[in-house]
Structure formats: C-alpha cells, structure tokens
Nucleic acid binder design. Structure first.
Length: 294
DNA sequence: AACGCGTGGGG
DNA sequence: TCCCCAAGCGT
C-alpha cells in the first residue's frame, strides 16, 4: 500500500468549501438551470451582494425562459435596475428567446449550444454546464485565475487573460470525478472571492496555505496589473448611465430637450445616444427616446 | 488583442 | 478622497 499522501490542492479546497460555502440561493439543490443561468448573467463583473435582490425579484417575475421571452425587452432593462452593464439585460432576454426557439424552452446542457446563446461566453457556458447540469468542465473566472496564479504559479497577480491557457491551467487541477470537479470549480471561485482576495488576502485563514507557492515564496509583489480602468466621471459610460436611468424611469418617450438638460456636453450626449441606439438599448421616435418594446 | 461597457463596495 | 476591483462578453 502507498504511504498516506498529503491532501491535494483540490481536496483542500473541497474540504474547506464543504463548510465555508455561502448559502447563495442559486446554489440551492432545487433551483432550475434557468435560475443558474440568470445568476451567471447578473454576476458577470458584478458582486454577489448587489445581485441577490435583483435575482430574487427576477426569478419571481420570470421563472422560465418562455416567461422572459414573452415580455418586452424594455421590461427586462427596467428590472435590471442599476446592476450595471445593461446590455446584459438585453442579451439575457435575447438568450431566452433563442432558448425558446431552438431548445423548446429548456436551457441546453451542451457547451456548444450554450456558447451559441447571446451573452454567453467561455466562462458562463461552462458555469451553467457545470453548476446546473453537473457536467465536468473547467470553470475559470477572475477569482479562479487569481487563486491558480498564487497557489500554483507563485505570483500575486494572474497574467493576461487567455481562455486556452486559463482552461488548461484549471484542467490540470480538476478532479476526474464529476461531482468532485463541480465542487472544486465552485470552491476555487469561492476561495478567491472570500479568502484569496485581490487586495487583502487572508493567508492565515486560507485552507491551501500549506500548498500555496506564492505564500511559500514570501508573497512576492510581482508586476501589478498594467492597464488602469478608465475614469468614470465624465466618461461616455456615465452619460449612457444617466440617459438610461431617465429612460427606465419614463413610461413615455423622453424628449431630447430633457436629455440636453441632464448633460451639458451636447456632442458627448449625441455620441452616447448613438451608441445606446446601436446597442438596442434605446430607440428613437418622433417624440423622443424610449427603451426597446420589441 | 485590446478596448468599451455601469455601478457600487471597500481599502 | 480617490482608486482598485468586481462570478465577462462582444467586437
């Protein structure tokens, strides 16, 4: 018989996750694949605490893809509220329509079918396949990228995102067995979100501290992220946000004069309106701007 | 490949 | 106060 071996990285994560997992409602055993899919759309670049109330309201109102598909896109954008990146609301509505048209109203479990849906990329497709259907795929989000960079590569920050490299790195750690793989995918994300955080990691409380290459190396502060996020104040994004807030609040076309009163830079407002229309988030009529009805 | 895309939490 | 960061995706 072999000697007793040290727990693997995945086993350490799994043991920790069994107790430390937050009781998020979309992780409950009885939730539908649609509920998981909605949570993944909302969680794209958005923290759990902000998603929780919007997800609950959304699932009560639109418990199936067909329910959402039958509503006007404008209602989806309104229900999205201030979650941010409102294109996601439009994409989710479009995905629901595609699910009804192509998959009989049932969220597909296959990677290719999921990837073909609007707004679903490499992360979300694998997250839905893994968490809603138990399929064995590597699931890599920003948390997992950071956990692997530190524990395996010994670096403080993950390198530039590369789907192929990131999936390969996670695959190298992924347990063979289906349920163990699913738990490791979820556990690695959770670890990055709650312990191995970007700014102030809690290495003392980390379940993988005994196997962390970064900690073993003395937590070297290697090259920090290079590209700084663009300033929001005064940005086109801010103007779009202001316009969209007006459109969400109004239930009749919003006159251009009202919008002009909300932003002094006419050229920038014009640009924002143009991109909103191009994105399908706004439509222009004789009486002004509205959210899309169909 | 790098950029544009919202809004807010937290150090 | 500011600035970093956040369960990414489409182009």
């Amino acid at each position: 018989m072999p000697h007793p071996t040290e727990p693997s990285f995945a086993e350490l994560v799994d043991d920790w996750f069994a107790d430390a997992a937050r009781p998020l409602p979309w992780r409950a055993a009885e939730v539908s694949p649609w509920a998981v899919l909605v949570s993944e759309f909302m969680l794209q670049q958005t923290q759990v605490s902000r998603v929780l109330p919007r997800w609950t309201a959304w699932m009560e109102r639109w418990p199936t893809p067909a329910a959402l598909a039958s509503a006007p896109p404008a209602e989806a954008v309104r229900a999205w509220d201030r979650l941010g990146y409102p294109r996601r609301a439009l994409w989710l509505h479009e995905a629901a329509t595609e699910i009804v048209e192509r998959h009989g109203g049932e969220v597909p479990s296959g990677l290719d079918e999921l990837l073909a849906l609007k707004g679903i990329g490499p992360y979300t497709a694998r997250a839905v396949a893994a968490f809603a259907f138990g399929e064995r795929h590597p699931v890599v989000d920003t948390n997992t990228r950071r956990v692997l960079a530190r524990a395996i590569d010994g670096r403080a920050h993950a390198g530039a995102p590369s789907t192929a490299r990131d999936l390969a790195a996670m695959s190298a750690q992924l347990p063979v067995e289906r349920d163990a793989a699913r738990r490791f995918n979820a556990g690695a994300m959770e670890l990055g979100a709650t312990v191995c955080t970007a700014r102030t990691p809690d290495c003392d409380g980390c379940p993988v501290r005994s196997r962390c290459a970064w900690l073993a190396a003395g937590r070297p502060d290697d090259g920090a992220p290079k590209r700084r996020q663009a300033r929001y104040e005064g940005s086109d994004r801010q103007v779009r946000g202001i316009v969209l807030a007006e459109l969400r609040a109004a239930h009749a076309p919003v006159d251009r004069a009202l919008l002009d009163a909300r932003w002094s830079d006419a050229a920038q407002l014009e640009r924002a309106l143009g991109t909103l229309v191009a994105d399908g988030l706004a439509v222009v009529g004789d009486e002004g701007y509205s959210l899309p009805d169909a």
